[in-house]
């Protein structure tokens, strides 16, 4: 150590300058790695996703509802697949966000230290559970349960195709659970960041604790909660392995008890055996998903920037 210090102070200046420059260049290259990665992913998604659009025709591809990729006269309409992802994500948000935000309120405002010390690690663990485990429980517990409901609901229906419980609703429940940790963590942070004077003023004016939470604190934490929702949307729309088996195996209109395919699950379950145009269309589905994610990312970025400006 001592020798080194000595060397670094009075060592060869030229050598030192070279080492400095090399270090800076290496760090710069490292930093541009992320840029390079995003650029090449974007390029590759576009390159491999567009051929099918020209082959099948954009109208036929995006607005047809018939998905028969392996038939003698194949048809590649992915409208239902896109709609399923949108509807499924929206429903998952509708279920997951209220529970998540209220749990965040519990952690930040209601719970005493002891209770928070139980709930908080639980939420963190929930985030760490691999998605295949959620899928396993979904198919083993949720699907049979859904099948019972399905049998009861469609007791007298003659047209309903029974799915054995692998339907949109099961997938939505799994997704709602999976976005909880994201929503809870980010909402909690933003609730805690609300200036204490807002709470104090509201309480001093005679508002009850609940009135203060719902009329003052939550509105003040709005931008953080919106961020949480957007991140939740990103997580739900991109999730694949947990819902591949849970959501069923055929392309249908996204109704609660229909067996459906999401953008992600179509890719995962068909990529293994697809060939030719079918495979290219799967890449187009990937491209559609990528476009959705990019929109979400840009939205998120602008929300965060706005939030930063407001804080200043």
């Amino acid at each position: 150590m001592k020798v080194e210090t000595y060397a670094s102070i009075s060592g060869n200046k030229k050598n030192k300058a070279v080492v400095e420059t090399v270090a800076q260049i290496i760090f710069t290259i490292c930093a541009f790695f992320a840029v390079l990665a995003v650029v090449s992913i974007t390029l590759y998604m576009i390159i491999s996703g567009t051929p099918a659009i020209f082959k099948v025709g954009i109208k036929e591809l995006l607005f047809s509802t018939v998905w028969q990729p392996t038939a003698a006269e194949p048809s590649f309409g992915i409208l239902y697949v896109i709609l399923t992802s949108i509807v499924g994500t929206a429903l998952a948000i509708l279920i997951g966000v209220p529970i998540g935000v209220l749990t965040a309120v519990f952690l930040a405002e209601v719970a005493n230290k002891k209770l928070a010390m139980v709930v908080k690690p639980a939420v963190e663990l929930l985030a760490g559970i691999p998605s295949v485990v959620y899928g396993l429980l979904g198919i083993y517990l949720l699907n049979p349960f859904m099948y019972k409901i399905e049998l009861w609901v469609f007791k007298d229906s003659k047209t309903h195709q029974f799915t054995g419980g692998a339907n949109l609703l099961s997938a939505v429940i799994v997704l709602a659970i999976m976005i909880l940790p994201t929503v809870i963590n980010i909402s909690e942070t933003s609730i805690r960041a609300v200036h204490p004077s807002i709470k104090a003023a509201s309480l001093a004016l005679g508002a009850s604790h609940m009135q203060t939470i719902f009329r003052m604190i939550l509105p003040a934490a709005k931008s953080g909660i919106v961020t949480a929702i957007v991140l939740g949307v990103g997580r739900a729309i991109g999730e694949a392995m947990a819902i591949t088996l849970v959501s069923g195996s055929s392309v249908n209109m996204p109704l609660p008890f229909n067996s459906v395919r999401f953008l992600t699950t179509a890719i995962v379950s068909e990529m293994g055996y697809s060939q030719g145009t079918h495979r290219q269309v799967l890449f187009t589905i990937g491209l559609v998903l990528f476009v959705f994610i990019m929109i979400i990312n840009v939205a998120l970025n602008s929300i965060l920037k706005k939030g930063a400006v407001e804080h200043e």
Binding site: A31, A34, V35, G286
Partner: peptide, 30 residues
Amino acid sequence: EYAKPGKIVSLIEFTTETLSGIPSVIFGLF
């Protein structure tokens, strides 16, 4: 430590954020 705040830094930070938001299926395809 090296970069001065500006367009390059915000570009790198934006792509890093983007990278963490890309779903794993897309990484798989790529």
